[in-house]
Structure formats: C-alpha cells, structure tokens
Design a protein around this nucleic acid. Structure first.
Lengths: 195, 195
DNA sequence: GTCTATATCATGATAGAC
DNA sequence: GTCTATCATGATATAGAC
C-alpha cells in the first residue's frame, strides 16, 4: 500500500499498474486496487469512471515507460548489432513477464480497442525502431543484405515476448536467456562465427 | 453448447478447454462452463472436485494434444531445417493464441504447481525435441557447428509464443508471420543465403 | 474529494431431494 | 448421476451524507 507522498489518483494508477502486471485485467478487481492504494470506494469513482477508465490510465503509463526504457537502450552507443544485443540482454525481471505484452492474453483488453491501442502502438513502435537499426546494420555490412529489417525486428521482439512465456512456464529465467543467446548466435556478424 | 453425443464429464472438459483458451483460467467461471456444456451444477461437482480439478483435466488434454500435433510435424519427412520450418509454418489459428502458452500469463495457474506442470512439461518437451533436430542438422552440416541446439530450440519456441503476442496486439496474423520469416532467414543453411 | 450505505449480479461451492 | 435450493463472499457499481 502506497504511503502518503502521492495524490490519490496517482496512488490509484500506480496500484492498478502493479495489479495489471501481476494478475492481468480480468484478474484485477476494483476492491484489490482500493486495498493496495489505500483509497476509498468513493475516491476511485470520483477520479475515474470505473475499472476500464482507470486501467486505461495505468496501461498508457506502463506503455510509455516501456517505450522510454527501450529507447534508452536502442539509442545508446555501439554498432547496430551491439544495440540489438543490448536490448536483448537488458536486465529484466523475467519471471514477472512483460507488463505490456501480457495484456494481449487478456480477453477484455483485446476486446476493447481503447485498452488494446497502447499495447499495439508500443509493440509496433518497438518493432519499427528495431527494424531501422537492422537496416542500418545492413548498410554497414553487419547484417546480410538479404535480411528484411522488419522481419528480423519482429523475430527479436517475439523472442523476448516468448522468452517470458518459457521462463514463467518453468519457473526459471533460464529458458529466456537460452532463447536470447540462440537468437544472438544467429544474428552474429559473419566474422564472429565459425560458419 | 455441446449436443448429446458426449458424456457429461466429456462435455465439461471440452467446454473448459475452449473457455481456458478464450479467457484463461482466471477469466473462466464455473457458471460459464456449465452454460457451454449444458451440464448442471450438480453434475459438475459430482464428476470433479471443483474448478481447479476440472481445469487440470482440461489442461492435461490440451497439452497432450499440442504435443501430438507438434510431434506429427517434427517427425515428418525432410531435412532438419525443413522440419523446423514445417513446425514454424504450420497452420495456426494465430489470433486465438497458444492454448498452452497463454496459461503462463494466468497468475492462478502459475501459483498452482499441479496446473503449471503440464504447461511446463509440454513446452520443455517441445524444446528438447527441437534441440535434437537442430543437433541432427549440425551433424549433417545444415546448421553451423557453433550453434547450440538447446538455445536455437528455445529461440524457435519463443518466436512462436511471442509471435502470438504480436499478432494479438495488432489484431492481425501479419506480425506472427513476419517473425517466423525473420527467424527462418537467420536459420537458413549457408547455401540458401546471399551472405 | 472522501466516506459509508446500499444494490445487483456473479463466483465458487455445499446440501439434499429425486 | 442429475437436479434445484441455498449460501457466503466478491465484483462493480450508484447514492447521498459530510
């Protein structure tokens, strides 16, 4: 429960963000949000129209945060390969899963265009950003010219999202790390390889 | 709702399988199962101890079915690369997601070892099976000797699982297909590549 | 802005008649 | 084996006092 250094709407949004990450939209009740935030029933319905409205605020903020984190790594120093590698190896709380990607398994999020939009836009932006970097790598001769930047970017994002699935299934980050190493081995510039 | 050619327990399990796929464990209520199966409250609690018990039967069957489908493709004809490709390109109802993988985003499944076990075992079996095939491909010179079969297998499974996430986020199978093509391009034997 | 009271329906299950 | 009743609790709000 958040102590008193945040405004009530702020505490409601942050509590909702945590619960959406832990339990998803379907698994998160207004009551749980109230308990975690320390706010009362009346406050919540004063500041937000209801569960979907509060969830939308929470999802937008989480999506924005994920984008900022990714951009921080992707616009960092290094060659294109190194930046993709930095993204893939970035420190993650693997067993918690992706706070954005997990929402795609939530039927009520997928059924509501307003809730799905921030999820879609964020993953789409990430793919486009990685695609640019791969194209840049092709120009530098770091990636084969035959590769399609958009396809490689999709494979990179999918490996991360799927890595979470494997890790959570087994209860250990090991499989996530294995998938990342496998993809990086396939992406490695020719001079780094035995082949 | 299932018509009368199945026994009541059978209809309960099949209805539960569908609902778990569509809405997950947290999002599936006994009431919804009863409505879809056409069974009454009493029947359900006669044949199963409760929701977790019924879900376990449903999950086990879904896991078994997924394994059989995958083995069908992976033990088929062709070189190792071709069999991995056949697995990746296999026809899928992409927007529905993976009936096994999606359960990893369900907090109540992950929290219950009995419910998680079939999920874990199935994905683990799949990885091990793919790893064998990659190792076989290395012996044949189809894959680089530097590659680790287990890591490539993890990347393959993760790409599929993550492909579902991308597809569901965007409401279109396009991104799933892109991720698969990207991974296949990286996996392609040297003689098929420009590099 | 926050609080308590109230309302309606769903959840997940038990009891006991048939 | 199946049915209907019943139950305690939770989900998701609205109303209105303060």
């Amino acid at each position: 429960m958040y102590s008193g250094f945040m405004s009530t709407p702020e505490r409601l949004i942050e509590s909702t963000r945590e619960l959406l990450w832990e339990r998803g939209y379907v698994g998160t009740s207004p009551k749980a949000i109230l308990e975690r935030s320390g706010a009362g029933q009346g406050s919540m319905y004063h500041h937000f129209k209801g569960k979907p409205d509060l969830a939308l605020a929470a999802i937008r903020r989480t999506a924005q945060e994920m984008r900022a984190t990714a951009e921080g790594v992707l616009s960092g120093p290094g060659t294109p390969y190194e930046r993709v590698e930095a993204y893939l190896r970035r420190e993650r709380d693997v067993l918690r899963g992706c706070p954005v990607g997990r929402l795609t398994m939530d039927p009520d999020v997928i059924a509501d265009d307003a809730l799905r939009a921030p999820v879609d836009e964020t993953l789409d932006w990430l793919r486009a950003r990685l695609a640019e970097i791969v194209e840049e790598g092709k120009e530098r001769g770091e990636f084969a010219p035959s590769l399609d930047g958009g396809e490689i970017a999709a494979a990179v994002v999918a490996t991360v999202q799927g890595g979470y699935v494997l890790a959570r299934a087994s209860g250990s980050p090991t499989a996530f790390d294995a998938a990342v190493r496998g993809l990086l081995a396939l992406l490695a510039p020719p001079e780094d390889r035995t082949r």
